[in-house]
Amino acid sequence: MTESYTLTVNEVAYSIVADAQRSLLSVIRGEVGLTGTKEGCDDSECGACMVLVDGRPVNSCSYLAVQAQGRAITTIEGLASGDALHVLQRNMLEEGGVQCGFCTPGMIMSAHALLDQNPDATEEDIRLGLAGNLCRCTGYAGIMKAVVRTAREGLSTDS
């Protein structure tokens, strides 16, 4: 059955008319039109679809979009300001944390949630914080370097 509701994505309100069974991922990509959030497995296994709901990481492929109404959704598009990359984005590029880039938005959203909650995250904390995000390319070392560096520099460092 079709439902009408409002989703707030990156502080912008969108009127959605969509089947109640649609996942948050499919509505963000298909209705809102933001395609930075990726679909890897569509099964809660890979983390490519990670977005923040009220600041906390959520696998958007396995979360009903209707259930996110009234909550603040943040996607990868919400991090950069204009053309200036967010410090996590910049560090991922500079530390070799990006190859094909498919896992990158999800990695960054998980890392953001972790460092926001725990600015003093250790390497062990970071490994566990990113445990729900898979990368087929990098071998994770560049990703770890990028997030460790961001923890040191601070999440809100200007790019």
Partner: peptide
């Protein structure tokens, strides 16, 4: 349980 996301939700 699962990952940080699974435990939050």
């Amino acid at each position: 349980v699962g990952s940080p996301a699974t435990r939050n939700v």
